[in-house]
């Protein structure tokens, strides 16, 4: 724990801002029922009320408290994004490492499939699958996780390939070590730094992607609070000069900026670039 603090103390100011943003968001998400003034779907006022003491950020298109919706939105969106990122990461890393160490037909098959998915704009792909599978949370998770796993696969495979040709891996093979040892003990520890950075990037991507789909009305469905759909629902307000939709949009922007700042720091550390 103390080493973690020391590690963070060495971080540049930009990364520290990122860490603060991330910690705050996670805290808000974790304690949502405790800190939010009203219930998630409770109608407490008029449509699009201005900021006031009772409604610090005003109300939304149905007269619900915007701050409450924002807090619950953090909870729902972050939880969903994390789930999907973990899923896609496990899938992609496993596939990538297997392809790199086993090679042969396993590598060819997986790589071809991934190439095919990547030769198609992700958003269009997701839209088409959702049109067929319907817009449930489960299909949302599956579609984004699989699509995202293809990118993780590419990176994991490339990183593992780079390490797999190193002499120390060859020495392990010549010693007679099994594939499991080679992957877990020789390759994985060395692949970790770029993969950790990639996790952050993937999280951002997934987060934005969910927000996008929700904004298009194809992601998380009402009345569940979610930042992307909140922008969509309140979009009409902007033409009246009411900036309600900007709040959730800004929240999305803030958390992705925060994560990106941390990722940048990690990438710099991993590449040994000290400027």
């Amino acid at each position: 724990m103390s080493s973690l603090i020391k590690f963070i103390q060495k971080a540049p100011w930009s990364a520290r801002i990122g860490i603060i943003i991330l910690v705050m968001n996670i805290a808000v998400a974790a304690f949502a029922p405790v800190i939010s003034p009203y219930g998630e779907t409770e109608i407490t006022g008029d449509v699009w009320e201005e900021m006031s003491l009772t409604h610090p950020l005003g109300t939304d298109h149905l007269g619900r408290d915007l701050l409450t919706r924002m807090i619950y939105g953090a909870r729902n969106t972050i939880a969903l994004a994390l789930t999907i990122t973990f899923l896609s990461f496990t899938l992609g890393t496993l596939g990538g490492f297997l392809a790199a160490t086993l090679g042969g037909w396993c590598d060819t098959l997986l790589s071809r499939m991934v190439d095919l998915v990547l030769s198609f704009p992700t958003l269009i792909f997701a839209l088409m699958v959702l049109s067929v599978a319907g817009t449930s949370i489960l299909s949302l998770i599956c579609v984004i996780a699989v699509l995202d796993a293809t990118r993780v696969f590419r990176l994991a495979r490339a990183v593992a390939m780079d390490i797999a040709v190193m002499d120390f891996v060859e020495a392990g093979r010549l010693r007679g070590e099994k594939t499991g040892w080679i992957i877990l003990r020789e390759i994985l520890p060395n692949a970790l730094p770029p993969l950790v950075a990639e996790f952050g990037l993937r999280f951002c991507f997934v987060f934005l992607f969910i927000a996008c789909l929700s904004f298009l009305g194809l992601g998380i469905q009402p009345p569940t609070a979610d930042w992307g759909s909140m922008v969509k629902e309140n979009a009409g307000a902007i033409t009246f000069g009411i900036f309600t939709p900007l709040w959730p949009a800004a929240a999305i922007a803030l958390i992705t900026v925060g994560v990106n700042l941390i990722v940048d720091w990690f990438l710099n550390l991993a590449s040994g670039l000290k400027e």
Binding site: M166, D167, F168, A171, L174, R185, E186, P189, N190
Partner: peptide, 16 residues
């Protein structure tokens, strides 16, 4: 039969 490599940098696992 054992082997010693040209580049000691890449012959040892940096994480071990």
């Amino acid at each position: 039969m054992q082997m010693i490599y040209q580049m000691p940098e890449t012959a040892l696992n940096p994480k071990q």
